[in-house]
């Protein structure tokens, strides 16, 4: 079982000039089972990105460790795909070339990778855009390319850092459905960071609300909305009274945290 396990994870940044220390994360413990969809929510600066970067292997923790299927994570790897807020596409390549970047790096057979690219472009709804340069795409389309580029590599875990943050409401809703569909069809473990409470509720089968200074998991929820989102329309779910209750509860929680930060500052 390719479970993702964080064990007493700590991250302290040291400013090289002043020597000042920031406890970005302290004692994070959780297990993410294969196929789970985890949403992470929290006030700005509580260490969400830091947590994701550590799981991706871009930075190494100062304490504790992360394992995926028993192996300790020390560096980036293809089994952990990453989707960035701004896509981070290679603007000198076409859509298809962007998507098959990972395959080319592995020197996959041309024929095979062409088929895979075709398939994934289809799934993310970009059929026929293979030869378009990426700088000619809209923000939502670019995010789809980033998703396809990540998925074509067939990772075990997909990590997303505010992937839909820069999109308008409508595109955002479509992308949320897309994420849910992908989750169902591929059965992948997904961890998604978001600023939007609604999005976290809709997408998160599990939901962590994090608190800052030091960054830690403040409260954990298990939610039914993601399952329901596979069948029902997202807009209907948002009308649900249970949904509204949880949303209010979390909003108050985050609001209080922000208040506290302000008060302390």
């Amino acid at each position: 079982m390719a479970n993702l396990i964080c064990d007493n994870l700590c991250m302290t940044f040291t400013n090289p000039q002043t020597g000042g220390k920031v406890e970005a994360l302290k004692d994070i413990n959780f297990t993410l089972k294969k196929g789970e969809l985890l949403a992470v929510l929290g006030p700005s600066g509580c260490g969400k990105t830091t947590l994701l970067n550590m799981i991706a292997g871009f930075i190494n923790p100062t304490g504790g460790h992360i394992t995926l299927g028993g192996d300790v994570i020390k560096s980036p790897g293809v089994e952990r795909g990453m989707v960035f807020q701004q896509g981070a596409l290679f603007e000198w390549l076409t859509v298809a070339k962007n998507v098959d970047f990972g395959l080319r790096m592995k020197s996959t057979d041309k024929q095979e990778s062409a088929e895979l690219v075709e398939k994934w472009l289809d799934i993310v709804g970009l059929q026929g855009f293979g030869d378009t340069p990426t700088y000619q795409l809209s923000g939502g389309m670019q995010q789809r390319v980033a998703l396809a580029r990540c998925l074509v590599n067939n990772p075990d875990v997909i990590l997303m850092d505010e992937p839909l943050g820069a999109l308008d409401a409508l595109t955002r809703e479509k992308m949320q459905s897309l994420v849910l569909d992908l989750w169902k069809e591929t059965g992948k473990t997904i961890m998604i960071i978001t600023h939007s409470v609604e999005e976290a509720l809709l997408l998160g089968e599990r939901l962590f609300v994090m608190a800052p200074r030091p960054g830690r998991i403040h409260k954990e929820y298990n939610l039914p909305f993601a399952e329901r989102g596979l069948k029902e329309s997202l807009r209907e779910i948002k009308q649900d009274s249970h949904f509204a209750d949880v949303r209010e509860e979390i909003l108050t929680m985050i609001w209080n945290m922000e208040e506290e930060i302000m008060g302390r500052a």
Binding site: P76, G77, R80, G81, M82, F101, G102, M105, N153
Partner: peptide, 8 residues
């Protein structure tokens, strides 16, 4: 970072 994650 993206290219690292993509296995380059």
């Amino acid at each position: 970072r993206a290219s690292h994650s993509l296995g380059a």
